[in-house]
């Protein structure tokens, strides 16, 4: 009962925030409200027992994407342009879509109904087979990394492609990425602000450590490569904001980041190919070692590492590309 009250409260706040985002002409406050929206939806996911999704939403939605949107904002005006005409048409399309969605929601089963199709289709098989075939406590990781390994490979390549696309759009075309034009004096971040600098320097190692914990503890608790990548890159972005772009690029240069992006995707695909070479199917980890369950564990750790490497590389590359572009103007 208490949970339902809390959920209704959060959903109401969510609607208010969404209306605020749409109505705000100030893009800066819209970005801040978007971060708030992500945080609220992460709490709702957590109440619905989806800890993995909640962690991803909090790390990516509220953390990294806010920073990336602020980076994009530095390249444009912070006021939304007035839309010209056609507002009635847009209103009509949005209203009809909303009515169809509300109508479709009448067919939805009740929340938590055991007879719902989502609980009757493949989910029981996954729950039954995970202890037998893979033996990791976190079923979400077993499904994501092993049973549905193809899907996760696809997601990884979506991120990979997105990173390349952003680089094509934002790099300066000199062929050396954006690293050639880093001014050193102006772009020194918050160096002259003592308090953020001291506290930030204190926090960065713990953020990266927590990222590594989430990376390697993903078999046992909520977490995995996507969340860990977002956390580690958040730590490095904090470092870049405090100590300046140049210092962060000394730690992880553009070349190293590009290497991480490629290495992660190659590692994932390589683990899949190793399955074929050892006489089974693509992405079948059971044949990697003599003991099938140990092979599954090894495969999951390796592909999660691949995911983490690529996600970190892509997020940091996008951040640096935005920052370098903003400094050039």
């Amino acid at each position: 009962m208490v949970v339902i009250v809390f959920e209704i409260f959060l959903l109401t706040l969510l609607v208010i925030t969404a209306v605020g985002i749409v109505r705000s002409r100030d893009l800066f406050s819209a970005v801040m409200l978007l971060g708030l929206f992500s945080l609220q939806i992460a709490v709702i996911f957590f109440i619905l027992d989806a800890a993995d999704v909640a962690l991803t939403e909090a790390a990516v939605g509220a953390g990294v994407s806010t920073v990336l949107l602020l980076g994009a904002l530095a390249l444009t005006s912070d006021r939304e342009a007035r839309p010209k005409g056609r507002r009635l048409l847009a209103l009509g399309v949005a209203s009809i879509t909303a009515l169809i969605l509300i109508y479709a929601s009448f067919d939805q089963p009740r929340l938590g109904d055991p007879q719902a199709p989502v609980h009757q289709h493949v989910a029981p098989w996954y729950l039954e087979q995970t202890p037998k075939q893979i033996d990791v406590p976190n079923v979400v990781t077993a499904i994501l990394a092993s049973f549905r390994g193809y899907d996760t490979l696809g997601e990884l390549f979506v991120i990979f492609t997105a990173g390349i696309g952003v680089l094509f759009l934002l790099a300066d075309g000199s062929g050396r990425g954006a690293r050639s034009q880093l001014p050193s004096a102006e772009a020194q971040g918050l160096r002259h602000h003592l308090i953020p600098r001291v506290v930030g320097a204190l926090l960065v190692p713990f953020i990266v450590l927590f990222g590594l914990y989430v990376q390697f503890h993903g078999d046992f608790g909520p977490g995995g490569g996507f969340q860990a990548g977002a956390l580690v890159s958040a730590g490095v972005i904090l470092y870049a904001l405090i100590e300046g772009e140049a210092s962060a690029l000394r730690v992880l240069s553009f070349r190293a980041l590009a290497g991480m992006i490629a290495a992660g995707a190659l590692l994932y695909t390589g683990v899949g190919l190793a399955g074929i070479l050892r006489g089974s199917q693509f992405l079948d980890y059971s044949v990697l070692l003599a003991d099938p369950i140990a092979g599954q564990h090894l495969g999951i750790i390796l592909i999660e590492l691949g995911v983490g490497l690529t996600v970190t590389g892509v997020l940091l590359t996008i951040f640096h590309a935005f920052a370098a572009r903003a400094q050039k103007r």
């Binding site: 602000h193 953020p196 506290v199």
Partner: peptide
Amino acid sequence: FLLLTCPTAAYA
């Protein structure tokens, strides 16, 4: 964590 970050955020 909150004791460290919140005053820093307020300062910033």
